[in-house]
């Protein structure tokens, strides 16, 4: 019997979520005590408790800043971004019925990069997240407009249009970099292109958390509709789904979510590509189970990946995209082996 002959073992959703959330809370608590600066667990706890208004002894000013202004916002942003990317990736894979789809498929990361690079290099007086988000949205609008010129929005058209827009935005980015080849602003751009949570502040937490909460909730609510796409567009339509409108609105929502995530962290790879596959091994592909569990798993994953990024080569900072790729590629390879002869054949 091949592995797929076995009746799939699908643990209850509530159990999975309970374990996942517990792991996430634990991960946040643990990783916030880990860092290049040598702070005791008690200090960290006192700093957090102090900010939460609990009556505790004061923490040294700079230590407090390290915990409350550097580590905690960074860990929480990592959690929100990881959750958002995993959900966005899962939804994009279903919408395009392409297991290799990721949240950046519609030219979003390239568009965001162009926006960000314009700010970093040209010194445009706009906040970087705002510019990146605007770039991502512009790319999305361009992609959908291009896909729309030829009629209905099929996955193939969306993907091809996304590719064209990506190329254009990448060329634009290269041009901006070429044209303003001064000093070492490149280092910043490079780190941004590879994805980094190093600049996370409470504003990043707010942006990514809010986007996750708002868009993520809607996407989970749309899970049933996503299931309907399992056997294709006609089948979905026969199940009462407005295929075109659903695809448009869900792609736009994914783009908004991704845009917000890219804006705070750059384009972190592999989370949105690999995690949905890994999670669906346990949850099965039903989106009502898959999406929430993918969100929690993505959060835990990125929290730890970023902790590695900021501590392994202390005092040097590693772009977190390198860590996610280093972990993601082997996982992907295992899933590929496992998936032989089924969904990915």
């Amino acid at each position: 019997m091949s592995p797929t002959d076995r009746p799939p073992l699908r643990p209850p959703l509530l159990l999975l979520l309970a374990v996942g959330v517990a792991l996430l809370v634990l991960s946040v608590l643990v990783t916030v005590t880990i860092g290049p600066a040598d702070l005791s667990v008690a200090e960290v706890a006192r700093s957090v408790a102090g900010h939460l208004g609990l009556p505790v002894a004061d923490v040294a000013r700079l230590h407090d800043a390290i915990v409350w202004d550097l580590r905690l916002p960074r860990v929480l942003t990592a959690a929100a971004v990881g959750a958002g990317l995993a959900v966005a990736g899962a939804v994009m894979q279903s919408l395009t019925r392409n297991p290799l789809a990721d949240p950046y498929l519609l030219g979003l990361s390239s568009g965001a990069s162009l926006g960000a690079v314009a700010v970093l290099v040209l010194g445009v007086a706009v906040l970087l997240p705002v510019a990146a988000f605007a770039g991502a949205l512009a790319a999305l609008v361009a992609t959908l407009a291009l896909a729309r010129t030829s009629g209905t929005l099929t996955p193939a058209r969306a993907v091809l249009a996304g590719l064209a827009v990506s190329q254009l935005a990448a060329a634009g980015t290269s041009f901006v970099i070429f044209w303003t080849a001064t000093g070492d602003s490149y280092r910043e751009i490079l780190s941004w292109l590879m994805g980094s949570l190093a600049g996370a502040t409470w504003t990043s937490v707010a942006i990514s958390g809010l986007a996750l909460l708002l868009v993520g909730t809607v996407l989970v609510a749309a899970a049933t509709r996503l299931d309907a796409f399992a056997f294709g567009d006609t089948s979905a339509a026969a199940l009462g789904i407005d295929v075109d409108r659903t695809r448009w609105s869900l792609m736009t929502l994914v783009a908004l979510l991704t845009g917000a995530m890219v804006a705070v962290s750059g384009a972190i790879g592999f989370v949105g590509l690999v995690l949905p596959h890994a999670v669906s091994v346990v949850t099965g592909p039903a989106h009502r189970r898959l999406l929430p569990v993918a969100a929690v798993t993505g959060a835990v994953f990125l929290v730890w990946a970023d902790t590695l990024a900021r501590t392994v080569f202390d005092p040097r900072e590693l772009p977190v995209g390198i860590v996610t790729a280093l972990i993601g590629v082997p996982v992907f390879a295992v899933l590929l082996r496992r998936g032989r002869g089924t969904a990915w054949s």
Binding site: P7, P8, F231, G284, P285, T342, S345
Partner: peptide, 9 residues
């Protein structure tokens, strides 16, 4: 035709 590779039970 129904896609044979859908990973559902």
């Amino acid at each position: 035709e129904s896609n044979a590779t859908v990973p559902l039970s």
